[in-house]
């Protein structure tokens, strides 16, 4: 019979070792995925990626210019639609509904929307924009991405505004400032870096989204900046190219994946730094 004391110690040592091993296991996948994307992506990088459009099936050469531009257009559309809506809704939650029941209900529903599957958001956009309009369009893609961006912005705006000290608001009200001016000139300003972080994290989230674009922006093999027509975009091109049997397409998919990954990771790291600085100051 092993003495109780050493048995307890053995269990402790075993479980803690397992914790360390699982952490190594988790980080191992990250390293593997990063390494794969990096090694395949760097090899496929070429200046023509930025100067030429996507090649036809089985074609040689070509680039991803139309996909990059299309993705940027979709992101810009999503930010233009999503940021004002998200910031205003978040402002109401933080400034006018801090202790109201309706506020917590909306906060709850927003959190559900935040985690809702993006493919469902895509189908919803198909139902409200594409189906009535009769055709796939870049505009619909922008709406779908905006719907994914909005809950992220609502949540961070709400959280960041609630961090602004109440004394600031009281001081402004004591000077006779109308509330709308107080919000726009003082609390928004105080929480600006936090709100910006929310938007940046939201952009990082939507720039890799593929599923909702399949039913909205679709894809376009050619150069197009027309918002009323299907548009090429990086995630769907990566999907199409990676699944294809053509060597040239697969190479290009890796290059695109590398670009997307670098963009998203840099954005995440940058916004985290911004957030840390903002909190330090306040």
């Amino acid at each position: 019979m092993i003495p109780l004391r050493s048995r307890r110690r053995a269990i402790n040592a075993f479980n803690l070792t397992m914790a360390v091993l699982t952490t190594v296991f988790g980080v191992f996948w990250l390293v593997w995925i990063l390494w794969t994307t990096l090694s395949h992506g760097i090899g496929a990088l070429h200046l023509s990626l930025f100067t030429q459009d996507t090649p036809p099936p089985g074609g040689e050469g070509g680039g991803l210019r139309n996909a990059f531009v299309g993705s940027l257009i979709l992101l810009a559309l999503a930010v233009a639609i999503g940021t004002p809506i998200g910031v205003l809704a978040g402002t109401w939650l933080a400034e006018f509904a801090a202790r109201r029941r309706l506020g917590s209900v909306i906060r709850f529903l927003n959190d559900i929307l935040l985690s809702a599957p993006s493919i469902v958001i895509g189908l919803f956009t198909y139902a409200i924009v594409v189906d009535p309009g009769g055709h796939f369009s870049a505009f619909a893609g922008g709406v779908a991405l905006a719907l994914i961006l909005i809950p992220v912005v609502v949540r961070t705006t709400d959280e960041m505004l609630r961090l602004v000290p109440g004394a600031l608001r009281e001081a402004a009200i004591a000077l006779g400032t109308p509330y709308w001016k107080l919000v726009m000139r003082i609390t928004w300003k105080a929480a600006a870096s936090g709100i910006l972080t929310g938007v940046l994290l939201g952009i990082a989230r939507i720039s890799g989204e593929t599923a909702p674009l399949l039913f909205t922006a679709l894809n376009n093999q050619f150069w197009s900046t027309d918002l009323a027509r299907p548009i090429a975009n990086l995630p769907v091109v990566i999907f199409q190219f990676a699944m294809s049997p053509y060597d040239n397409w697969q190479k290009m998919a890796w290059a695109g994946a590398f670009e997307a990954m670098a963009f998203i990771l840099l954005l995440s790291v940058f916004s985290r730094l911004l957030l840390r600085r903002g909190i330090h100051r306040s």
């Binding site: 990250l30 593997w32 890799g208 990771l265």
Partner: peptide, 20 residues
Amino acid sequence: AVELLAAVPSIIYGMWGLLV
């Protein structure tokens, strides 16, 4: 590192899963 793993888009998981 864990948070970055969460930021990696799902299409890259898919590609890595299929091809690697």
